[in-house]
Simulated assay, not measured.
Amino acid sequence: MPTDLEQTAQEIHSTPVSFPATDGYTLSGVEYRPNSAAKANIIISSATGVPQQFYRRFAEYAAKLGYQVLTFDYRGIGRSAPSKLKGFKMSYLDWGRYDLSGAIAYMQQHGQETFLVGHSYGGQALGLTSNHDQIRAMYCFGTGAGWHGYMPFKEKMKVHVMWNIVFPPMVAIKGYLPWSKLNMGADLPVDVYKQWRRWCKNPTYFFADPELSELTQQYAAVQTPIYAVAALDDDWALPNSRHAFMQHYAQASMHYINIEAQDYGLKQIGHMGYFRKGAEPLWQEVIGRFDELLVA
């Protein structure tokens, strides 16, 4: 039997778009629109090294239920990458500070309220934006502090090997992290790799970086309601890792949600299953919550 939400589904249109980050860098995205007037906007803020196409199914699902949805690639990733990644200079923080800020500004032109759906880094990025007050609420999945100590032993050892044995020679040879060669995502700019590796060595992630002391106050200024989801089989962002990061959104109305794959008819979720085919029952909860907030 179709749900009440699914019974309202309508045809959609998707259109490639480009828009500026707040520092002027041109970003590539896709807008998914319903046939009728959209009830609100949704921006999907991607995980590290995950191209926007990965979120297409969720975007289409939300658009069919009346939302105008934007997916986009951060600078250096996918369609927003330069022709040659070697030598491309940027900060890992640019994705939130400039790129997501630019996406928010772009979608605000449509006039409706805007929601954010973040995946992993995408949930971290809200606190880096200059216009987080324009986001009605954020639903994020798999957002954690990145420290291997929060992971189960097997995953901890795997991550240790990747960071310390596999990745360094690959980066030394290529001048960037050729992640695509390992089927782990899009290739990463070298600066992203270096910062990510350094921050993941600390239980409090980049909040422990003495060069980024301002971030604690910056994140504490966010008052956007946040729904932070952790799948209990997501070894990269288990509840303890999630709390280690999300606690820095000190003034936000925080809702911690733990989920198990079998409750959604899935064999597993892990770190990527939140947006894979079959996760529609989970997406229904997201859209249902946004619908409730629109009429609250």
Results as ranks from 00 to 15, higher is better:
residue 211 E to F: 01
residue 216 T to Q: 13
residue 235 D to E: 12
residue 207 F to Q: 00
residue 213 S to N: 10
residue 218 Q to Y: 04
residue 235 D to F: 12
residue 219 Y to D: 02
residue 222 V to K: 06
residue 223 Q to V: 15
residue 231 A to Y: 07
residue 243 H to G: 07
residue 238 L to R: 10
residue 215 L to V: 03
residue 232 L to V: 09
residue 211 E to V: 04
residue 222 V to Y: 06
residue 241 S to H: 09
residue 235 D to A: 14
residue 221 A to E: 11
residue 206 F to L: 06
residue 208 A to M: 05
residue 223 Q to G: 12
residue 239 P to N: 06
residue 239 P to T: 08
residue 234 D to R: 05
residue 221 A to D: 10
residue 211 E to A: 13
residue 216 T to Y: 11
residue 202 N to Y: 14
residue 240 N to Y: 11
residue 219 Y to E: 01
residue 228 A to Y: 06
residue 230 A to M: 05
residue 230 A to T: 13
residue 214 E to D: 14
residue 234 D to H: 04
residue 219 Y to R: 04
residue 233 D to W: 12
residue 230 A to R: 03
residue 228 A to F: 02
residue 219 Y to T: 03
residue 237 A to R: 08
residue 222 V to T: 04
residue 207 F to G: 00
residue 234 D to K: 02
residue 208 A to H: 02
residue 225 P to C: 02
residue 240 N to G: 09
residue 241 S to R: 05
residue 203 P to G: 04
residue 222 V to G: 03
residue 235 D to V: 14
residue 214 E to N: 13
residue 205 Y to E: 01
residue 211 E to M: 04
residue 213 S to R: 14
residue 236 W to F: 15
residue 207 F to Y: 03
residue 202 N to F: 14
residue 215 L to P: 05
residue 219 Y to W: 10
residue 226 I to M: 14
residue 220 A to V: 00
residue 235 D to M: 12
residue 208 A to E: 09
residue 239 P to L: 02
residue 232 L to M: 14
residue 227 Y to N: 08
residue 237 A to P: 12
residue 216 T to R: 15
residue 235 D to H: 14
residue 206 F to G: 00
residue 227 Y to L: 05
residue 242 R to A: 07
residue 202 N to M: 12
residue 224 T to A: 04
residue 219 Y to V: 02
residue 201 K to F: 00
residue 206 F to N: 03
residue 242 R to G: 09
residue 201 K to I: 01
